[in-house]
């Protein structure tokens, strides 16, 4: 942290020096990143849900996905997850200025747990931009919350070809770690392009953090708060996909599929292949608190 602060203050000094130089007319340069830089600026807000109106999530932005995945043809939602998603207020409610997605341990429709999963499909979809949410996460073995994006053509172009951008995933038994990933043809599930971000002196379950991606035509940057921890480009993905011999028969392996509108998903899964089931120490209910979701575009 100290080192980073030092770099920051050095940058400020540099800027101050440059500004001083400009004022004396020696060098003409700006401190602002211009459009030739790889960091895109997304300043125009295109969607925001501050979760200020008590009740169910705003139905003009969100719909629920209900069940255990069987109706969608993917029992256990493709990962052997244990929860049954409902639209009951017990599992998803807006109150106290935030959205609460609550995972409960209860027998319901043949499942041992209930939770909720809301999606913005057909209600808010966007290509490129900054997608961010301020979230306090649940905790405990078996909890698997996520804030993620899915390509809006999965019906015609089945996953993973339609693309997935996981802005934030987290496992409740690693309360200091989140990870950001992209999935697509030849790089998905266990072979997704993914990176962990670990807090050094804090946890994700006892305070809010901002999770964001900045997605431009040839780059997806992943942020926790103001820290950039991963930058994915078509080259990154091509390299990753080329490493897998399983991809030799795929003609689209490593294709960059992040060039169409995506929609937002927020959910708390319980159990499943990645986290494993809850154990005796897992405390229920568990809640993911979402203070806001905001999306920006470039213009």
């Amino acid at each position: 942290m100290n080192l980073k602060n030092k770099i920051k203050s050095n940058a400020i000094q540099l800027c101050a020096t440059l500004v001083a130089m400009i004022t004396v007319g020696v060098v003409v340069i700006s401190c602002n990143p211009d459009d030739t830089q790889i960091v895109a600026n997304f300043n125009t807000i295109t969607m925001q849900d501050e979760f200020d109106i008590d009740g169910a999530p705003n139905s003009s932005l969100w719909t629920f996905e209900i069940g255990d995945g069987t109706a969608q043809g993917i029992p256990g939602w493709g990962n052997n997850e244990l929860q049954y998603y409902t639209d009951r207020p017990e599992n998803a409610v807006v109150e106290d200025g935030m959205l609460k997605i609550v995972a409960r341990q209860e027998a319901f429709e043949g499942s041992g747990y209930t939770s909720a999963r809301i999606i913005s499909q057909n209600l808010f979809e966007q290509q490129y931009g900054r997608f961010e949410a301020r979230i306090k996460l649940p905790w405990g073995q078996g909890l698997w919350p996520a804030f993620w994006l899915l390509g809006n053509d999965c019906a015609e172009n089945p996953w993973p070809n339609c693309g997935e951008i996981d802005v934030m995933e987290y496992l409740g038994d690693e309360p200091t770690v989140i990870f950001g990933s992209v999935h697509g043809p030849g790089y998905n599930a266990g072979d997704s392009v993914s990176k962990k971000y670990e807090l050094q002196n804090a946890r994700f379950d006892d305070e809010f953090h901002i999770f964001g991606v900045e997605w431009s035509p040839n780059r997806i940057n992943f942020y926790v708060d103001d820290e950039l921890y991963q930058s994915i480009t078509p080259e990154t993905i091509a390299d990753e996909a080329a490493e897998s011999i399983d991809n030799s028969l795929l003609d689209n392996a490593g294709d960059w599929v992040f060039n169409r509108p995506f929609f937002i998903i927020m959910n708390v899964a319980v159990g499943g292949n990645l986290p494993g089931p809850p154990n005796a120490d897992t405390v229920f209910p568990q809640t993911m608190y979402v203070d806001y979701v905001r999306v920006y575009s470039a213009d």
């Binding site: 309360p175 200091t176 050094q200």
Partner: peptide, 8 residues
């Protein structure tokens, strides 16, 4: 130590 990583 002041770990900051103890919670709940």
């Amino acid at each position: 130590e002041n770990l900051g990583t103890l919670g709940q």
